[in-house]
Design a protein around this nucleic acid. Structure first.
Length: 550
RNA sequence: GGCUCAUUGGUCAAGUGGUUAAGACGUCGCCCUCUCACGGCGAAGACAGGAGUUCGACUCUCCUAUGAGCUACCA
């Protein structure tokens, strides 16, 4: 067989050689430690937590030592394509403070486009050049098998209990003559381009994974498809060419790719490429309600783990980043607690420290982190964050909550414990915060929340007395002393300890008095300092709310 | 079925032959306290199972179990 002739028959329009591209995309001039990573999503128009999780890993690895983090769009599968997906990806990641250094999304003539195009469908010329070269070397051939024939083959192999797939003696079209190929082509028969695998059955390769260490895998023997019948490359072929030509140094990808590593190993070898480092990551998992087991996040089954969900509820992107980092690198949390003031990007992120097994997304933990981190912000920062969130996610509330900036800031100071010895940690996410402080912005107390513990008559008696004695000018201690007086006057103990020592001597304690007032004013049994609440709300509002209970 | 990876408390996890098996979240108790939140102190709670190797195994080997992934002209 004259492979040269076959190559020209198959790719008459390809006039370039691999050397051309090798020269066009030279090795990057970066320091030794610098790594080049990429995020390579399909443009499905959907990003979820798992995507963010691995994008963050990529980004940290690249930016740890001034490397490059770029965006490549893997649109080789027609069915998955969605318009505007690239924009969505860039915007979403930007929301979480992750920026690309180059790749899709940058203008064509931009400096950040030097290794482009970064969209695979715009790279077919490149793939075909390498494909032609492979054909020339007798390492690839056209395969005219139909789906039915392949299906037939699979059945036959299953019956024989043989390994399924197109390989070795089963790869009939390996031996097609030039004339046969020419004839098929002339008849317009569709074909795919297959790799002529050089692997031997039973042989093993030792594959080094940056996270898992050395893994023994069987050598690839399959004549895998390089170019689909429409001339578009499969993931495997595109991966080899793109990551080589874009000079990727570390490929971070999901663990489901580990099994196909032998294919990539062979491909890189036959193409004469130096292999990048690989890091196969564990997926974020969740508990499956039906089976009770762990399983990987699925975009179809787990809409609540879409990034939109977290944006809509108003989780602070910084908190999300912190949480994901604690999952990604187990020593991050310790580092962050040790140096709370250091920018988190200074954390020495390491590939080796990444998890081997999939972690469950722990909402409690995330909540805890959110509360902790928000408590470190200033009231102005929280104000701005809430304002921005409300603009898009709660426009109806925006006008109400932000009508009076000073009032809002006072409320935030109250809830954050600004000025106290220690900050409070009540605030977790925007939606929850709006709910938490809602009673400040309604006509009356939140009647749906908590009920009074004392009976109607007693309640009215106490609240009446409270209104009579109340003085707006009284400071916090004077005001509380007044509550104690009420307690004493009605058979409650003004001294909590005395009450606890002999509860049978009293109807209750001053805390019951405070609670009655608290519920009357706010509708809730639990709030921060009541005196401050009253003074933010104003005397009239307070009196009105209490009168409603009489 | 074949191949691969994983398995330390409810969750996330330190740990690489000798430890009282860290720490964080959660849970519970106590203290502080007008409630809540914060903070402090404390408690319960784990090496999937079985064989080896070894003076000694969470750590090494093998087997079993369980879970996950791959086995496409999808990525």
């Amino acid at each position: 067989m004259d492979y040269e002739k076959l190559a020209n028959l198959l790719f008459p329009d390809v006039d370039k050689t691999p050397d051309y591209y090798e020269e066009k995309y030279p090795y990057r001039k970066l320091s030794k430690k610098a790594e080049v990573t990429r995020m390579a999503p399909s443009p499905t128009g959907f990003i979820h937590l798992g995507n963010l999780y691995s994008a963050l890993a990529d980004e940290r690895i690249a930016h740890r030592h001034d490397g490059v983090f770029y965006l490549r769009i893997e649109d080789t599968d027609e069915k998955r394509k969605v318009e505007g997906a690239v924009d969505l990806i860039i915007k979403t990641l930007r929301y979480f403070d992750i920026e690309f250094d180059e790749g899709a999304g940058f203008p064509e003539d931009a400096e950040q486009n030097q290794y482009g195009p970064y969209v695979q469908r715009q790279r077919v010329e490149i793939y075909h050049t390498y494909a032609k070269d492979l054909v020339k070397k007798g390492l690839a051939y056209p395969c005219f098998q139909t789906e039915e024939e392949l299906e037939e083959l699979r059945k036959q192999q299953e019956e024989e209990k043989a390994l399924t797939g197109y390989y070795g003696k089963y790869a009939k079209d390996r031996d097609l003559t030039y004339e046969e190929i020419e004839k098929n082509l002339a008849e317009g028969k569709p074909y795919v381009l297959r790799l002529h695998s050089q692997g031997t059955e039973g042989k093993e390769i030792v594959f080094k994974d940056e996270i898992k260490g050395e893994v023994k895998l069987p050598e690839n023997i399959h004549d895998i498809v390089l170019l689909k019948k429409d001339g578009i490359p499969t993931y495997h072929f595109a991966h080899a060419i793109d990551d080589h030509l874009m000079r990727t140094t570390v490929v971070v990808r999901g663990g489901e790719w580990l099994a196909s590593a032998p294919i990539h190993y062979e491909l890189f070898n036959l193409l004469g490429f130096k292999m990048p480092k690989y890091a196969h990551t564990a997926h974020l998992m969740k508990i499956d309600e039906e089976t009770g087991g762990k399983r990987k996040l699925s975009k179809r089954k787990d809409p609540e783990l879409s990034l939109n969900y977290y944006m809509e509820d108003g989780y602070h992107p910084y908190c999300m980043k912190i949480y994901l980092l604690t999952l990604l690198n187990s020593n991050f949390e310790e580092w962050h607690n040790q140096f709370p003031d250091k920018p988190i990007n200074e954390f020495p992120f390491s590939v080796e420290k990444m998890n081997q097994s999939g972690a469950l997304f722990d909402k409690d933990k995330f909540m805890n982190i959110s509360k902790n981190e928000l408590s470190k912000l200033s009231e102005d920062e929280i104000y701005d964050f809430l304002y921005t969130w409300a603009e898009t996610y709660a426009p109806d509330k925006k006008d109400i909550y932000f009508a009076d900036k000073e009032k809002m800031l006072s409320i935030l100071r109250l809830y954050m414990g600004v000025g106290m010895k220690r900050r409070r940690k009540d605030l977790a996410y925007a939606k929850q915060i709006f709910e938490l402080i809602s009673y400040f912005f309604t006509e009356e107390a939140d009647s749906s929340a908590d009920d009074f513990k004392m009976d109607e008559a007693e309640k009215k008696l106490i609240l009446n007395d409270y209104l009579e004695r109340f003085s707006y000018e009284a400071d916090n201690t004077a005001w509380f002393d007044m509550l104690k007086e009420i307690a004493d006057a009605h058979g409650y103990s003004s001294d909590i300890k005395a009450y606890k020592a002999n509860p049978e001597n009293f109807k209750g304690s001053v805390s019951d008095i405070a609670e009655a007032v608290r519920i009357a004013v706010t509708g809730r049994a639990n709030t921060p300092d009541l005196w401050t609440i009253i003074h933010i709300m104003g005397e009239d509002a307070m009196r009105e709310r209490i009168k409603k209970q009489l």
